[in-house]
Design a protein around this nucleic acid. Structure first.
Lengths: 170, 170
DNA sequence: TCCGGGGCTTCACATCCACGAAACAGACGC
DNA sequence: GCGTCTGTTTCGTGGATGTGAAGCCCCGGA
């Protein structure tokens, strides 16, 4: 995980998107622009021109806060091995593609359509196939403390479980 | 509560004291000094010389965080996911449209008529539908510390709750 | 002061649809 | 052959939306 560097006010829209996904941001403020109101604790800004030292300091601060809020993303490699919190599981092809799509938008909603396209690029099978694969994927990743939440009639959303965090850190 | 303005590195000792007391701080960094590592979320810094605008912006940001890791404005994304203070809930279509209308006028009154139009662009169902949906919306967003206040015979108004802040931080 | 009504809140249902879950079956690889 | 991966069918549960009706509160009028 890294801090996203954005221009302000140029990247206003991207900023909102990243904020919604919980991605930390550092806004580079144009010399003559007004500083924005910060959305949350994972955001900061520097006025340009700024020294690399100052920029690095603010990035480090954001990362520290981010770590404090605890939310490491799982990692999926090209062999379908999913790692998170020291543990790992292997994902079969279809589930790996589904998970990849969810991970790309970690913390944000992925529509069922988008998932179906990700899972079956050549065309999806029956409608229920997706349901079943999500079910199986859920069970497979549960031991890693990763959860797929349903957002009814909208899609699915990937996040770290809450209950397991204490167990994991213990 | 106000933000303490300190010089850095001159006021290092006072900074530690204030931090221990939970007092928010803004460090004014000497032009040639290295930026400090931030102790907590209630601290920030600006490099001198800095404009009053920038200083005020950072003070405001600190105060926002101080109001309690979640006193930020709620954010509703296009997938009906409402985020606030690290938590989130999903809103079904009708409630999402109602909430959007309230959020557009955050802190101000939105008339029942306007709400009805926002919730049912094609025309509202029974008159009571709005009441019931407001009720359900209230219950759904309560866990996020967001409150819909009634302004009798005028409409509704969206704001952050106060009582829940302690629960939320626990 | 008491009463009636408007405005809002809340509950109890009823309907419809999305999603969850189990069971089953074919295909494939070791 | 056995276990895994994948897809299908089927059934059940719970969410989303509306409607009707009972209650509360406050305000204005008799």
């Amino acid at each position: 995980m890294d801090v996203a560097l954005l221009s302000w006010p140029a990247d206003a829209e991207r900023r909102a998107t990243l904020a919604a996904q919980g991605v930390p941001r550092l806004l580079m403020i144009d010399a003559d622009a007004a500083p924005p109101t910060l959305i949350d604790c994972l955001e900061d800004w520097v006025r340009l021109p700024a020294s690399q030292t100052d920029i690095d300091a603010r990035r480090a601060a954001i990362l520290t806060r981010h770590a404090g809020h605890g939310s490491d993303r799982p990692v999926l490699d090209r062999d379908g091995v999913l790692r998170c919190g020291g543990e790992w599981v292997s994902l079969p092809p279809v589930e790996a593609r589904l998970f990849e799509a969810l991970l790309d938008r970690f913390g944000a909603v992925v529509s069922r359509d988008a998932l179906a396209r990700a899972g079956w690029p050549a065309g999806a099978p029956g409608r229920n196939a997706l349901d079943v694969h999500v079910l199986r994927l859920r069970r497979r990743i549960a031991p890693l403390g990763i959860v797929i939440k349903t957002v009814r009639s909208r899609g699915y959303l990937l996040e770290r479980g809450s209950a397991l965090l204490s167990v994991e850190s213990a």
